[in-house]
């Protein structure tokens, strides 16, 4: 474990807590894309298949349970909770996220570390996570006034993967044979997708104006 990875995990944890806080306290999911949340639930479900078979550390297991629990409960809240679901603007959240799942699955069947079910699912979860934010970014472009919590959620979600890139650089130089091209390239693509969001997020913070993404 290194500081970059710990900071990345904490930032990721903060992003899901910010979103859970928003949905649970103000009982609203306005501006939140259900499709991105469903994709993330699928990402964790396919990435943490080894949660009960390989014990790495208490930290690792606890964090996996938190990410699984939070992502599925957020999907439940937006789909089922009688008050929250009313604030979900489904006619704005129209990204065809199923069109993201299949190409990621096909790519995982072609490019993986080892042709086993677990490894193909692992690669699938990395490719899917790289594009999972797209429905949310599209929704933000359509949402005129993005509330602070949603903006913070997306920012933290992007920042966590950027911190992971620093972690991979650190581990590459400190651990022999630490090479994971699939993870690195997927993580880089994922972070680059946030580039324009980061720009507008920083601009709005610097000029102290409401965050708005150009359509």
């Amino acid at each position: 474990m290194n500081i970059f990875r710990l900071a990345g995990d904490m930032t990721h944890l903060a992003s899901v807590l910010v979103l859970l806080l928003k949905i649970h306290t103000i009982k609203s999911c306005a501006g939140v894309s259900l499709k991105t949340q469903e994709l993330y639930a699928l990402v964790f479900a396919t990435r943490y298949l080894d949660i009960f078979t390989d014990f790495i550390s208490l930290y690792n297991t606890v964090m996996k349970l938190i990410f699984l629990g939070s992502s599925f409960s957020i999907v439940w809240y937006i789909r089922r909770h009688k008050i929250v679901r009313r604030s979900y603007d489904k006619d704005q959240d129209t990204f065809r996220h199923y069109f993201l799942v299949l190409p990621c699955l096909l790519l995982a069947l072609v490019i993986h570390e080892k042709f086993t079910f677990r490894e193909v699912m692992w690669a699938f979860s990395l490719y899917l996570e790289a594009v999972a934010i797209l429905p949310q970014l599209v929704l933000l472009q359509r949402t005129r006034n993005i509330d602070n919590l949603t903006g913070q959620y997306v920012f933290l979600l992007g920042a966590y993967r950027a911190l992971y890139i620093l972690n991979w650089i650190y581990r590459y130089f400190t651990e022999p044979h630490f090479v994971h091209w699939i993870t690195w390239i997927a993580g880089l693509v994922q972070t680059l997708l946030y580039a324009d969001f980061f720009y507008y997020y920083f601009e709005s913070w610097k000029n102290n104006v409401k965050l708005q993404l150009p359509a």
Binding site: D50, D54, I56, N60, M63, E113, K114, R118, E119, Y164
Partner: peptide
């Protein structure tokens, strides 16, 4: 055979 690559990151 090579044991399953251990993914120790989240």
């Amino acid at each position: 055979d090579l044991e399953q690559p251990m993914h120790d990151e989240l």
